[in-house]
């Protein structure tokens, strides 16, 4: 009875085992409701989607498309984070500050309207996809990175001054090295945006395949079981990468685990 009461009380912490019971129960409930209400309708049932997932992941066609998407995402993320870090660190130099703030505003630009411009600027489909992906991700990266820099306690800069560090040494110690773990966290959080964008940009040049291409083709033939199966696969891969990046952050920066424990 007490557990039941705790389930619906704010600010109570559930034991880990109870938490997982709640998660699994809710999942089963949702799937059961979905199965009941979707049977005989247009939306495929979870069972049909499950069958489609098994069918898809065992084909070479999926493996090729999966690696095409993953490679493009990782490459896009790598290039974007380097550009975003460069812009963010430069924001501390007064001359470059307005430019960095302007990049933040690019989040509100829609990529669709820029496709023609990027088609003119790039020489093939692969370059077009990469450019759009990078242009789409960089403003989100810069926004998160500038927020991290804004949040730095002024006393950290003062500490560097009292330790006779130069301004460049202070930038290195406090902003670059001192916030590297948070850069990793930004990458983890923005991986979701990159992963979401990938399906969109892949639709622009379908010859190189990718999960986005799979989705568009399945949509075209109203193969909804495959559409939902690909969506589930995209979701699961996203969650796995989120987990891997989080674990990698703890491994590379052991003190981040201490901060989590203290909370």
């Amino acid at each position: 009875m007490k557990i039941l009461k705790n389930l619906f009380s704010p600010f109570t912490t559930l034991p880990r085992s109870i938490y997982w019971v709640v998660v699994v129960s809710q999942l089963i409930l949702v799937l059961a409701l979905w199965q009941v209400f979707a049977t005989g309708g247009l939306i495929p049932t979870p069972l049909k989607i499950g069958e489609a997932v098994i069918r898809i992941v065992t084909t070479a066609y999926f493996i090729d498309n999966f690696f095409a998407s993953l490679l493009l995402t990782l490459k896009g993320m790598g290039i974007s984070i380097i550009i975003a870090l460069f812009i963010s660190y430069l924001s501390l130099v007064p001359f470059f500050y307005p430019f960095a703030r302007f990049v933040v505003k690019w989040r509100y630009l829609t990529l669709t309207g820029l496709i023609f411009l990027f088609t003119l600027l790039t020489s093939n489909g692969s370059q077009l996809k990469m450019s759009l992906l990078v242009f789409g991700i960089v403003p989100f990266f810069v926004t998160s990175l500038l927020h991290i820099i804004d949040e730095i306690n002024v006393q950290e800069y003062e500490l560097c001054k009292t330790l006779r560090m130069s301004n460049w040494q202070t930038l290195w110690e406090v902003v670059i090295v001192g916030r590297l773990d948070q850069v990793f966290e930004v990458m983890r959080q923005n991986f979701a945006i990159a992963w979401m964008m990938i399906t969109m940009v892949e639709g622009l040049s379908m010859s190189q395949g990718g999960l986005g291409t799979m989705l568009i083709k399945s949509n075209k033939y109203i193969d909804l079981s495959t559409v939902f199966a690909v969506l589930i696969i995209i979701l699961v891969i996203g969650i796995v990468f989120d987990y891997l990046l989080r674990e990698m952050r703890h491994w590379l920066f052991p003190y981040t685990q201490l901060q989590v424990k203290k909370k």
């Binding site: 306690n153 006393q155 950290e156 003062e158 500490l159 001054k161 009292t162 330790l163 006779r164 110690e173 406090v174 090295v177 001192g178 590297l180 773990d181 920066f253 003190y255 901060q259």
Partner: peptide
């Protein structure tokens, strides 16, 4: 000038990384 005098702030700021 900054650096001539050592400072120990109230919240003992250190490099947490």
């Amino acid at each position: 000038k900054a650096g001539d005098v050592g400072v120990v702030p109230q919240n003992y700021i250190l490099f947490n990384h």
